[in-house]
């Protein structure tokens, strides 16, 4: 390259740098502006293009992306600092499996419980008739059975699974907590019961699913494989299975829609719901309020591991 172009080039690059830094508004960010200059130099060093405009745009785009990633990382770091991982990935997968299957089973099961209702007929026609309904219901059932298998394996083989199971067992403290909660409700006490990892509410939900699962999967399998089960069992066992399946389904549906939805969606401090089922994290504020004993233990464990 002839020398007489060199000065012009330097000048051009300097101006470009100024432009870029101005346009990105990163004058104060030393790291970013140095990086921007570097990128610009790399780009122009290859050749002094006549397509400066497109070069510039590309550089700006690159820089903006870097900036976005950086701020995202910072945000995430800050959030992680302020939150506690309450549910691990296995826990969350189990919950997603459970609610997906339960929603499918409720939607496809309710029309059979109330065959005369208009809503049932509409629901059934949306699903495309009783054959498709049967297929979806059985797919939901398989997912639910998969969930129970997963959960059993998790409870047996995973350390956190074993710990959670032990923590979920009912103990005298839970009854004290209920009593304390009632006192708090009536204003007789200003203190809410201090819960550990699982409050009596969550323990109730867990054991309700446990009981419901045995009833639903057991009776459901008897009906699904009726040609097999009726070979060995009398017909009234099938009738019992049907009655239990239908009744327990209604109990579970109502409990989920009224109780669980209130606790996680409709109560004023949660409405319209949170993303905890996705990321499994609670803010420190929420942890202190809802699971103070667990929070204290986490802090203690952290300190112990640091020591």
């Amino acid at each position: 390259m002839p020398d007489r172009y060199k000065d012009a080039r330097e000048k051009f690059i300097e101006e470009l740098e100024k432009d870029v830094i101005e346009s990105l508004n990163i004058r104060d960010d030393k790291e970013l502006s140095t990086r921007a200059k570097q990128l610009l130099r790399d780009e122009t060093a290859r050749d002094l293009s006549f397509f400066v405009d497109s070069r510039l745009k590309r550089v700006v785009r690159l820089l903006k992306r870097q900036q976005r990633i950086k701020s995202k990382l910072e945000k995430k770091e800050k959030w992680e600092k302020n939150t506690v991982q309450r549910f691990n990935i296995y826990f969350r997968i189990q919950h997603i499996m459970l609610f997906t299957s339960v929603v499918l089973l409720i939607i496809t099961g309710l029309p059979l419980k109330f065959p005369g209702a208009t809503a049932s007929r509409i629901l059934m026609s949306i699903m495309g008739g009783i054959t498709t309904q049967g297929i979806i219901h059985r797919a939901g059932a398989l997912l639910l059975i998969g969930f129970y298998v997963f959960h059993t394996l998790y409870t047996i083989f995973n350390k956190e699974g074993r710990r959670d199971f032990m923590l979920l067992l009912p103990r005298p403290r839970d009854f004290k907590d209920v009593f304390q909660m009632i006192k708090y409700f009536f204003g007789l006490s200003k203190e809410k019961p201090r819960f550990d990892r699982f409050s009596y509410i969550e323990k109730f939900d867990y054991w309700a699913v446990y009981w419901g699962g045995i009833v639903m999967v057991g009776s459901g399998l008897i009906m699904w494989l009726h040609n097999l089960t009726l070979r060995y069992l009398p017909k009234y066992v099938y009738d019992i299975a049907r009655e239990a399946h239908s009744d327990e389904a209604l109990l579970a549906t109502l409990t989920i829609v009224i109780w669980h939805f209130y606790n996680v969606h409709f109560n004023p401090s949660r409405f319209p719901g949170s993303l905890i089922w996705w990321h499994g994290r609670l803010t420190k504020q929420e942890m202190i309020e809802e699971h103070p004993l667990e929070y204290e233990r986490i802090i203690k464990d952290k300190q112990d591991s640091n020591d």
């Binding site: 009726h226 040609n227 009726l230 070979r231 060995y232 009398p234 009234y236 099938y238 009738d239």
Partner: peptide, 15 residues
């Protein structure tokens, strides 16, 4: 119902 046997008679049909 393939292989239906005497179990079908144990219990009411119109329940």
């Amino acid at each position: 119902h393939p292989n239906a046997n005497v179990n079908f008679t144990k219990g009411k049909i119109h329940v």
